[in-house]
Design a protein around this nucleic acid. Structure first.
Lengths: 223, 223, 223, 223
DNA sequence: GATGAATGAGGTTTCATTCAT
DNA sequence: GATGAATGAAACCTCATTCAT
C-alpha cells in the first residue's frame, strides 16, 4: 500500500495552523451535511482563505474530502493502534478496543460520520478505492496480526480463518461506532435495545459484546 | 409501528404495470447515483411519464426515494421472514438466513445499495426516522423473537441479552450484505480476505460466519 | 356600460349552492394569496368539483378571478348604493358612507383585498379594462350624481368640478378601505397615526375625515 | 427607523455603471410584468451579467425587487423633500408638490408602478414590512412636520389632527400618482373625469385638487 | 354533465471551478 | 502566494389547461 496524498504540494507549504483550520472546518462541514451538500466555498470562507487559494491546495472538492477523511482516520487509528501493540491477550485487547471505541466515538463523532459518509459514496472512483485501501489495510493488519499471534500461541480456537474472523470483528466494531454517532444507526440501536444510545449503560453493551466475541473466538478450544 | 405510505393516493390508482416501472427505474437511479445525484426528471422520463404526473404520485423527491426503499426492503424482508417463521433451531435458521443473504444480495443488489444509501443520509428528517423505524422494527422483531424462543427452549446460553445479541447478529448480516453489493464494502472485503467477493468461495465465508455466530450463542451453554 | 359576464353559460345552469361555494372558495384563495399565487386546481378541489368542470364553468383562471371580483363588488356596492339613494344631504350621506366602509371593510375584508389585487394587476387586458369600467362606473355615478344634486340645490360650493371632486372623494374612501384590510396600507396607517388600525378609535378617524371632506365641499360657499 | 439594505456587500463593490444597469433593467422588468411574472434570469441577461453573479449581489428575487423599489422611491422622495424643506406656506408647498407629482409620475412612471406593486403584495413578509416602514416613514414625516409647522403658525385650522390630515393628504397624492401611471387607476380616472389622463388638462386637475385640499385645511380658520 | 389523469414549459436557486489580477 | 468575481449548467417543483372517457 502506498501512502497517497490527496492535496497539492502547496498545502504542505501552508502553515500548520492553516492546515489544521481548513481540515477542521472541512470535517465539520462534510460530517454535518454529507459530501454532496457540503459547500467548498463555505469551507474556504470559514477557514479564512479565498476559494482561489483553496484550489491551489486541493484540485477538487473530492480531494479535500479525502484529505479530511484521512486526517480523521489517522487520529482514530493511532488510538486503536496503541492498544493493539500491547502484549495483552486477544480478548483483553478486544475489551480495551471496545472501550476505546465507545469513548472515542463520542469524542470524535465527526470523524465517524465522515467514515460513514465515504462508506456509502457512489461511483467508486479510483481515488475512493485508494482511500478504502489505505484505511482498511491499516485496520485489517491490526486485527489479522493480532489474531494470527493468538492463533500461534493457542489462545484461540484453531479452526478459525484469521482473515475472516478479523473481518467479522471489524464488522461488529464498525457498526458499534456508527451506532454511537450516525443518525440512522442510532435509531436502529434504539429499536433493538429499547434505549437511546446516549442513555444506555455502556458497561452492559461492552459486557455483552465481549461475551459474543469471546465465545466466538474460544469455542471448542482445546484447554 | 404504523405502516406509513410515502406516495400519494394517485399512485395507488395508477396501473400496477406503471407502479412497477416507476419503482424499478427509481431504484436503479437511486442505487447507482445515490440520493443527491439521482435525477427525478430522468426517472420520470425513463418511466414513460411526465414530470408533472410524477409529482402527482409523489410529493417530493424524498417521498419517491422512500417508496423505492420500502419496496426493496419489503421484498427482502419477506424472504427473511419465511425463513425465520419455520420450526428450525436458531442456528439452522441462521445458516439459512446467511445463505439467503448471499444469494439475494447478488440478485437484489440495488435494494441493498439503497439501504446503504439511506443508512448514511444526513439531516435525518422525521420521515427518514419513520422509515428507519419501519425497516428495523420488522427485522429486529424477527431476530429478537427467534432468540427469545431459543432462550426459552434452552437452545442457547442463558446469560445472553436477547436484544443486544440480536443487534450484534444483525450487524454481522448487514455488513455481509453490504460486502456483497456496495463498492466501499466490497473493497474492504477484498482487503481482509484477499479475494474479490465475486470470486470468493461463498461456502467458506458462510462456514466461518456460522462458526463465529454459533459459538457466540452456544458458549458455556449447559449440556 | 354593458353588464359583462365572465363565466360560461354552464355556470349559470349550475345550482345556486354550487355557484356560491365556488365563488366563496375563490374569493378566499385569491384574496389570501393574490392572483398569481392562487391555484385554480385547489379552488376546484375545495369547492368539491373537478377541475374539468371548473373549466366548463370558466374559460380561464382570469375569468374565474373576474367573476369573484364582480361578486364581491356587487355586494359591497349594494350597501353603498342604499345609502346614497336616500334623501340626505351630501355630507350626511358622506358620513353614513364612511361609517359603512369602516364596518364593511372589516366584515368583507376579502372583497377589499381582491379589489386591491385587481387594482394593481399588470398587463391590463381588455377584460381587466371592462372590469374596471364596470366597477368604477357604478361607483362614480353614485358620487357624481350625488354631488351634482347637491350642486343644483346649492348645498355645496359652486366652483367645484363635480367629476373631479367625486374622484377625490372616491380616492379617500378607497384608501380608507385598504387601510382597514390590506397589509401594506395597514402598516402605512400605523405609521401615520401611530396606532394599529385594529386598535384605533374609529370615531376619531371618521370625525377627522368628515372635517376634511366637509370643508373641501363647503369652503367659500355662499350662505 | 434603520436604513436597511437588501443587497449583499458584493453589489456595493460592483461598479456604479453595473449597479445602475441592473437596477434599471430590474425596475423595467418588475414594473411592466409585476413581481410574480418578472424573470430574474432575464434581468441578469439584459444587465449583461450571469445569473450566478446576480445571486452574488442579491440573495433572492425578493431582495432584488426590494432594492429596485428603494432606489425608485429614494429618487422620488428627494424631489418631494426639496419642496417641503422650503419656507413656503403649506398650501404653496402643496401646490408645488402636486405639480411635481404630475411631472414626475410621467417621467418616472416605472417607479410608481413598482410602488403600486408592492402596496398590493400578498403575504407581507418581515422584509416587506421593513420596506413599507422605510418608505412611509420618510413620506409621513414630511407631511406631518409641515402640517405641524403650519399649525404652530396658525396657518391652518386649529381643530385638525395633523397625523390624520397628513394621512388623508398622502392618500390623495398617492392616488393621483397611480392615476398617472397604473393601468387600473388610469381607467378609473377616465371614468370619473371622462378624459384619458394623457389628454387631460393637468391645470384643471391641479386647480381642483388644490381647492379640495385648501378648503380642508383652511375651513373655519380664525382670520 | 362530470371526471381527473396527464402534460411540460418555465422559473428560482446552487455551487464547483476558472482565471485575470 | 493570494484574491474573489464570474460562470452557467442543472435540478426541483408548480400549475394552467386539455381531453379521453
Amino acid at each position: 500500500m502506498i501512502e497517497k496524498q490527496y492535496y497539492k504540494d502547496a498545502f504542505e507549504r501552508a502553515g500548520e495552523e492553516r492546515q489544521k483550520k481548513i481540515l477542521e472546518v472541512g470535517i465539520e462541514e462534510f460530517s454535518s451535511k454529507g459530501y454532496e451538500n457540503a459547500n467548498i466555498n463555505i469551507i474556504a470562507q470559514k477557514s479564512g482563505i479565498s476559494i482561489g487559494l483553496m484550489y491551489k491546495y486541493f484540485s477538487t472538492k473530492e480531494d479535500l474530502f479525502l484529505t479530511c477523511i484521512k486526517r480523521g482516520m489517522d487520529i482514530l487509528e493511532k488510538a486503536l493502534y496503541n492498544i493493539m501493540i500491547s502484549d495483552d491477550k486477544l480478548l483483553v485487547k478486544a475489551e480495551k478496543m471496545i472501550r476505546t471505541i465507545c469513548i472515542h466515538s463520542k469524542k470524535y463523532s465527526n470523524y465517524i460520520k465522515m467514515y460513514n459518509e465515504i462508506s456509502s459514496a457512489k461511483g467508486s472512483t479510483e481515488k475512493m478505492k485508494l482511500m478504502a485501501e489505505e484505511i482498511e489495510t491499516k485496520r485489517s493488519s491490526i486485527y489479522i496480526t493480532s489474531i494470527g499471534q493468538a492463533l500461534a500461541k493457542g489462545d484461540v480456537r484453531s479452526d478459525l480463518d484469521p482473515r475472516l474472523f478479523a473481518f467479522f470483528l471489524d464488522n461488529l466494531l464498525t457498526e458499534l461506532q456508527f451506532s454511537y454517532t450516525c443518525d440512522y444507526y442510532r435509531e436502529k440501536f434504539k429499536i433493538y435495545t429499547g434505549v437511546d444510545v446516549n442513555e444506555t449503560d455502556d458497561e452492559q453493551v461492552i459486557l455483552q459484546l465481549l461475551k459474543f466475541i469471546e465465545s466466538a473466538f474460544s469455542f471448542g478450544k482445546e484447554e
